[in-house]
């Protein structure tokens, strides 16, 4: 593996400015240590810790946003009406509806089939009865007896086939059993993913707020009016979101973007 490719994963999460600042402070620390200037070295360590803290929250925020976007790409929606574009994406509710409709159609057909099977079974029973009646009413020569025997065997075979057919229909019905289990599992998965999604939004907001706070606390200078207003705005946004249970996808995306993720 190329030695330069492995560490390149980090600059995508940590900004170049932060990385450069970190390197600069590290060089200064090394210089202080070489000069045996412990007091200055301790100050450098504190400065490195501050950079580290800011980077940590920033990385958490970016990773969270990445996870959130990945979940959003699944296009999991509770809405029944989907646009043409949405239908091209994975939609678990669509899968539930599709499989449920298929199960319903299958059950429609099995119900009709059972009705048909009963009719055919009844016809064979009637045929058997008629044969019995015929054999009791008329004297039979050898040829007639042989014919009656063939007809009875035919009826018995038909009855046996109907029994097999009925059993097969039962198996088809039982196979639909899994649709219910599958839809329950998918519904649980949708619920869990939505919970994770909401948690990620909250985590992103929290990480962003901590990043902002660490930026302010890292500076020994007092906040100017704009910084103060920005901070209040960020906290206000966090409070607003915390009180609303469900956001529209667009609102969430707008908010995340406004928070810098």
């Amino acid at each position: 593996m190329n030695a330069h490719t492995e560490p390149s994963q980090f600059p995508s999460l940590i900004s170049n400015i932060e990385l450069e600042s970190f390197r600069h402070k590290t060089d200064e620390l090394m210089a202080d240590l070489e000069k045996n200037d412990i007091s200055s070295a301790l100050n450098r360590i504190n400065e490195i810790n501050e950079i580290n803290g800011k980077s940590f929250y920033s990385v958490i925020g970016k990773l969270t946003r990445g996870l959130y976007d990945a979940i959003s790409d699944l296009s999991i929606s509770s809405k029944q009406d989907q646009s043409a574009n949405d239908k091209t994406r994975v939609d678990l509710n669509y899968v539930i509806n599709l499989t449920d409709n298929a199960a319903q159609k299958t059950l429609d057909m099995t119900e009709k089939s059972r009705s048909n099977i009963q009719c055919i079974a009844q016809q064979f029973t009637t045929q058997s009865d008629l044969l019995e009646e015929y054999s009791s009413l008329f004297s039979k020569d050898d040829a007639g007896a042989e014919f009656l025997q063939k007809m009875k065997a035919h009826c018995q075979e038909g009855t046996s086939n109907i029994s097999t057919l009925n059993s097969n229909v039962s198996e088809i019905v039982m196979a639909q059993n899994y649709q219910d289990i599958a839809s329950q599992s998918i519904t649980k998965a949708i619920h869990i993913i939505k919970e994770v999604e909401n948690s990620l939004v909250a985590l992103t907001q929290y990480a962003n707020l901590l990043t902002k706070l660490s930026q302010y606390s890292a500076s020994s200078a007092e906040m100017d009016q704009k910084e103060s207003d920005d901070l209040k705005s960020n906290i206000g946004q966090l409070n607003n979101i915390s009180t609303s249970e469900h956001l529209d996808q667009g609102d969430v995306d707008d908010l995340l973007s406004s928070l810098g993720f």
Binding site: A103, Q104, L107, T110, E111, S170, V173, D180
Partner: peptide, 9 residues
């Protein structure tokens, strides 16, 4: 579907 399955069975 589950109701119908159980009824048919």
């Amino acid at each position: 579907s589950m109701r119908r399955i159980e009824k048919q069975i």
